Amino acid sequence: MKWTFAPVSRAGWVAIHVEARKLIDTRSARWLQLVMASVGLVLIALAIGLTSARSATLELSVVLAGLALPGAVIAPLLAILAITSDWQHKDVVKFYAVQPKRSVILAAKYIAVTVFAVAVVLVDCVIALLVATVFSWAANVPLVYGAYGSSLWQVVCSVVVGSVSGAAVASALMSTPVAIVFVLAQSTVLDLLIGFIPNIPAAYLQSGTFSSFLSEGGEVIPAVSSALIWIVVPALIGAWRHAKRDVV
C-alpha cells in the first residue's frame, strides 16, 4: 500500500484558526487566564521571598515551576471549554453548517488546544527568565540555571498531556461542569486513591503515569496503559459522540 501525504485543507486551517481564537477571546477563557497569571505571580513572589530571606542563590527552575503550576492546572480547563462550550450554547449548529465534516472541527479543537498549551509553556519560560534575571540583578543574588532544561521539559509534558487528556475527557462527557469536576478529581483525588488500593498495578491506571514517563522515563507498558485509559479511549468515545449527536 502506498502512503501519500495529505496536507491540511484551507477549511481545516480556518477551523484551527477559529478554535485557537476562541481559546483567548471568550469571557470564560480570559477569566481562566487571569486566574492563571495571578496565581503564577503569587507563587513567584513566594519563591523570590524565600530566596531573599535565606540569602541563597536563585534557581531559575524554581521560578519556572511557580509560573507553570497554575498553567498545568488551568490549561486542561481551557481545553474542556474548547471542546464543550459550543454544545452548551448551540453555537455548534452554525459551525457545522459552515463545515459539515464534524471530524474536521473536532480535530481542529485538539490541534488548537495542543498549540495553545505549548504557547503557554513558552510564555512561562520567557517570563521566568526575565523575572529571575531582573531580581538577580536588583538584589545581587546569584542566578543558577541548574536543572532549568529538565524542569522546562517536565512542564511541557505536564501541560500538553494534561490539555490533551482534558480535551479527550470533555469530548466523551460533552458537559462543561461534569468534565471540569471530573478532570479536577482525576488529577487531585483519583490518582491518589488508586495508589492506596492494595494488590493492583496502580501505575497502569493512574493518569499521571504517561506524563511522568515522557518527562522522567520509566516502564513503557504502564505509560501506554495510562495513555489508553485517559486519552485514547475517551478520545474515541468523544469522536463517536460528536459524530452521532444531534445538533438541532
Rank of each mutant, 00 (worst) to 15 (best):
W3L: 13
T4F: 14
F5T: 05
F5P: 13
S9R: 03
G12L: 11
W13P: 10
A15H: 12
I16C: 03
K22S: 03
D25E: 04
R27S: 08
S28M: 13
R30M: 06
W31K: 05
W31C: 04
L34E: 04
G40M: 03
V42G: 10
L43D: 08
L43Q: 10
I44W: 04
L46Y: 13
I48H: 09
G49W: 13
S52E: 15
R54I: 05
S55R: 15
A56Q: 12
T57N: 11
T57A: 15
L58E: 06
L60D: 00
S61Y: 05
V62E: 10
V63R: 01
A65R: 09
A72S: 03
I74E: 05
L78T: 00
L81N: 01
I83F: 11
T84E: 06
D86Y: 10
D86L: 05
W87T: 03
K90R: 10
K101H: 15
V104H: 11
K109T: 04
I111P: 12
I111D: 04
A112H: 07
V118M: 04
A119S: 01
V121N: 05
D124H: 08
T133W: 12
A138Y: 12
A139V: 15
P142E: 00
G149V: 02
L152R: 01
W153F: 13
V156D: 00
V161I: 04
V164Y: 05
V164S: 05
G166K: 06
G166M: 03
A168H: 03
A172V: 02
L173Y: 08
T176G: 08
V178C: 11
I180G: 02
F182W: 14
V183N: 05
V183E: 03
S187Y: 14
T188K: 15
V189A: 10
D191P: 06
G195P: 11
N199V: 09
A202W: 10
S207G: 11
G208L: 12
S211L: 06
S226E: 04
L228Y: 09
L228C: 14
W230P: 08
W230S: 00
W230R: 02
W230V: 00
V232W: 12
V232Y: 09
V233W: 13
V233C: 09
P234G: 00
P234V: 01
I237V: 13
G238N: 06
W240S: 08
R241H: 05
H242R: 11
A243Q: 14
K244S: 13
D246T: 01
V247S: 04
V248P: 14
